[in-house]
Design a binder for these strands. Structure first.
Lengths: 214, 214
DNA sequence: GACTGTGAAGCCATTCACAGCT
DNA sequence: AGCTGTGAATGGCTTCACAGTC
């Protein structure tokens, strides 16, 4: 069995391609070329072809790609042929906003519950998902076969929450807290760091500005 | 004047180092080595030294780095020696969560207003920031010298909002909508794509799972 | 003629390994 | 002896350019 290592950047782009293709599909367009995809998402055509080539031959030479067919293949590659079950720890502003966010449900992510240690929040419900106490976490993860936990608590509690999620049995964690988590290496972790992105912007702003005068 | 191109990954890490250093500083630790920083944030010591070396010599051979001194230098590099003025377009769940998020204010980002087209939302206030109608956007950006606009509207309105922000005069955009924005190339744009990160997780989950059985 | 799929080349980032300070 | 700063080596991703197919 031959195995190429897939660059993570390729996966990021596949996710972007897939959203672009769903737009294109909604317009009723049947066929698309690598150049058109590239223009639509701001990468090079060679990049598009190379990314797809890691996973097979989805196009027809001289013609291009069938939009629906390619879209379906990419969704499958990304693991979106199935639904995923998610819990969110932290029912504050961010946790509730994530629960209400439509971008997740539309792509097969089902948020089954939120968890919080604040008694005042427990018992309420967002978008059909109940807010439960932390001691129910393991029960729910096990009984609902939860795959993914999102960490939406302040930085100082993030590691404890991650430990609880690992103990409860999730396979992956999406961390919104601005702290590096340590977890066993069979657990997938990704960080969505809101400040980091802002700070890359500010770096670029001051950096360019300095060069204006150099 | 000699100019190296700085990898974007370096900037990302600097932002992470800086948060780690502020934790370390709070513990009263005065000196730190590249190995300790590396352990704390999960990168290699050589990487830490290389990242810092792009900007100068901040350490002392045989000793390490002075925590406060290094932290201050990194903040300066990231452009965080000054405050930045921000507006958020979209006063829905995400927009309001971003406004309440403490991680921004703590690092010098001041959110001065939100904008929304929904009359029902206009007039309310989050964390001291008023929700205003879109036709006030340009006024506020000009009068408050707003540097950065955040896009927190549904994907289908994201491009229009970006156009308005550019027209109003912001220098940079942080886009939370799952759509590729096109803007003049003197405007800095970064995307925080919540679904992309989830989908990298699911890809890794199915990918590894497939290999378990191969 | 048009467009994909892909080896090869080029480029960029990370790691190595050690010289240089303290 | 300990740790930084850095040229050189490595590894990985992107772009090039063209053979292959429709």
């Amino acid at each position: 069995m031959k195995t190429l290592k897939i660059p993570e950047a390729t996966i990021t782009r596949l996710s972007v391609y897939s959203r672009f293709l769903s737009q294109v599909d909604q317009k009723g367009i049947v066929t698309i070329s690598s150049v058109e995809i590239a223009d639509g998402v701001g990468v090079s055509p060679a990049q598009v072809r190379k990314d797809l080539a890691y996973f097979g031959e989805f196009g027809t030479r001289g013609v291009g790609y069938n939009v629906q067919d390619l879209h379906m293949h990419i969704l499958k590659i990304l693991g979106l042929a199935q639904d995923w079950t998610v819990v969110i720890v932290g029912a504050g502003h961010l946790g509730s906003a994530l629960t209400m966010y439509n971008g997740f449900r539309g792509r097969g992510f089902r948020i089954v519950a939120l968890f919080d240690q604040d008694p005042a929040k427990i018992g309420s419900e967002y978008n059909g998902a109940p807010v439960l106490p932390m001691d129910k976490l393991k029960d729910i993860v096990q009984s609902k076969k939860v795959d993914i936990g999102m960490v939406a608590v302040p930085a100082e509690h993030a590691q404890d929450v991650a430990d609880s999620l690992v103990d409860a049995g999730v396979a992956a964690i999406l961390n919104f807290a601005p702290r590096v988590l340590s977890v066993p290496n069979n657990i997938e972790v990704r960080n969505v760091d809101l400040s980091v992105n802002l700070e890359i912007l500010t770096f670029n702003l001051v950096f360019n500005r300095d060069y204006q005068k150099a």
